[in-house]
Each structure stands twice: as structure tokens, then as C-alpha cells.
């Protein structure tokens, strides 16, 4: 089995010791990978670099698309990268305001990616949007409401619908549960797990919460000071943490 994403020696250096360094990992189709670490550990930088929002300083990132064609992301032309971003990837942000268009309706938000891929039939767009709203447990009667009328949890679920509507191969998530309270978080994670499993979507999720990793991820990377200090199966990391920092993280969540 070939990985859909292989990262080797990836480095993004801000020049003051900050950034991410010597990152190596592989991601397979349908797999959920969590990147955990404290604030400033370089996890969001890593995600943004992988998604092409930041330019890498060194290393290689190879992505395989639906047709098994390999793309070296660090050397990809911008046009090609944007094409991949709208057809093969999704990006769910921590703040819904960054990931949604707040001044157009939920239906338009969901169908925007379909329109970007060339769908020009209003009836079909609307049907797809209604279908996906149902899938993320938002009533189809909210189709014409603007996201600003939605609760925080609904906005995050709308982001999921907006990204998954084109059935991407890989979705980047940057602390999607950051601003949600515990019960809303649980519902969001449950839904995300079901949708990515059903559609065989690979996810790279950044979080500072090992609990989120435990619920969703098959594998976890633990980052500190811009480097991966421990990587492996999530259960293994939780049950038998090796690195002192991971031990600290695990002990803090188990006590809670």
C-alpha cells in the first residue's frame, strides 16, 4: 500500500528557533492522524506548510491524488496547488470565520466548492447542499440562513460539510474543536469520525488535546519545540508514553 502523503525531512524555519524541523511521517488513505503539542510547538506551522499555505525551507512532501499521480508539494506551481486544494483537499480552521463566508447563506457556503469545480446547475447544487447539511446534522430548513445565525458548533459542522462536499482525499483540520464546549465537542468529533470513515477521507488534525486524539486518531505525532518527540499508534502513546513530555501530557489528561 502506498501512502497518500509522505513527508521527509520537512523544515520550516522562522529564523528565531521557531518553526518545525526534521519532520518525517507517512499518511495512508482513510487514516486519521493527530498532531498534538503545546502552544508554540510548531504544530500549526507544520499543518500550514503541508497545506502549502507556507513555503517549506527544506525537505519533501509527496501527495498522491485520486489517480495515483504523485505531486511534490514543495515544488508545485501555484496553479496546480490551488487545483489540488479545491479538488483533493479540505481545510477546516479553528475559527469558523476564517473558513466560512459569513455573508452568504449556508447553502452557498456548502456548494461553493462544487461551483469552483464547474457545476453550473442550480437545482443539483441546492440538492447537494441540503444533503450535506443533513449529514452534518443541520436541518435543511437552515439552508438559506447565514452562518452568523448559527451556533459555534453548527458553524464548525458547516465547515465540515463545505469541505467534504467534493469528497476530498485529505482534510487538514487546525484545532477544529478549540472554541467548543465539551458536549458540543463530543458531538462534533463523533460526526467527524463517522463522515471520514464512511467516505474514506484521510485527516491530519492539529490539537492540543490528547482526548481528541484518543477519540479520533489511529496514529499520533507529539510535537515539542518544533520537533516530533514521539510518534506511533494513539493507543500505544496513551498507554505507554516514552518521552517525558508525552508522559506529562498523558498524566495530565488521565488525572482530569
Amino acid at each position: 500500500m502506498t501512502p497518500i502523503l509522505s513527508v521527509q525531512g520537512l523544515r520550516k524555519d522562522y529564523g528565531n528557533g521557531q518553526g518545525c524541523f526534521d519532520i518525517d511521517f507517512e499518511l495512508f488513505a482513510g487514516e486519521v492522524l493527530c498532531i498534538v503539542g503545546e502552544s508554540g510547538s510548531g504544530k500549526s506551522t507544520l499543518l500550514a506548510t503541508l497545506a502549502g499555505k507556507l513555503a517549506a525551507d527544506d525537505g519533501s512532501v509527496v501527495f498522491r491524488d485520486k489517480n495515483e499521480r504523485a505531486h511534490e508539494l514543495t515544488r508545485l506551481a501555484e496553479a496546480e496547488r490551488r487545483r489540488l486544494a479545491r479538488s483533493e483537499w479540505g481545510y477546516v480552521t479553528q475559527h469558523a470565520r476564517d473558513g466560512l463566508r459569513m455573508n452568504v447563506s449556508a447553502g452557498a457556503n456548502v456548494s461553493e466548492r462544487l461551483m469552483a469545480l464547474g457545476e453550473r446547475h442550480y437545482g443539483r447544487l441546492r440538492a447537494a447542499a441540503a444533503d450535506w447539511l443533513e449529514k452534518v446534522e443541520i436541518g435543511a430548513d437552515r439552508l438559506d440562513d447565514k452562518p452568523c445565525a448559527f451556533s459555534g458548533g453548527m458553524q464548525q459542522r458547516l465547515q465540515i460539510a463545505r469541505n467534504l462536499v467534493t469528497r476530498p482525499r485529505l482534510v487538514f483540520m487546525d484545532e477544529p474543536t478549540g472554541g467548543l464546549d465539551v458536549s458540543v465537542q463530543a458531538r462534533f468529533l463523533d460526526l467527524t469520525r463517522r463522515l471520514v470513515h464512511d467516505n474514506r477521507i484521510a485527516v491530519i488534525m492539529v490539537t492540543h488535546d490528547l482526548g481528541v486524539a484518543r477519540l479520533l486518531a489511529q496514529r499520533t505525532l507529539v510535537m515539542q519545540g518544533g520537533r516530533v518527540v514521539e510518534a506511533g499508534l494513539t493507543d500505544q502513546i496513551l498507554d505507554d508514553p516514552q518521552h517525558p513530555y508525552t508522559q506529562l501530557l498523558v498524566s495530565s489528561i488521565l488525572q482530569a
Partner: peptide, 8 residues
């Protein structure tokens, strides 16, 4: 595609 968002 964005322009069609407005028409939508």
C-alpha cells in the same frame, strides 16, 4: 466559481 456564489 465564486461569481456563481453570488448568483446562487
Amino acid at each position: 466559481g465564486l461569481m456563481h456564489v453570488k448568483l446562487y
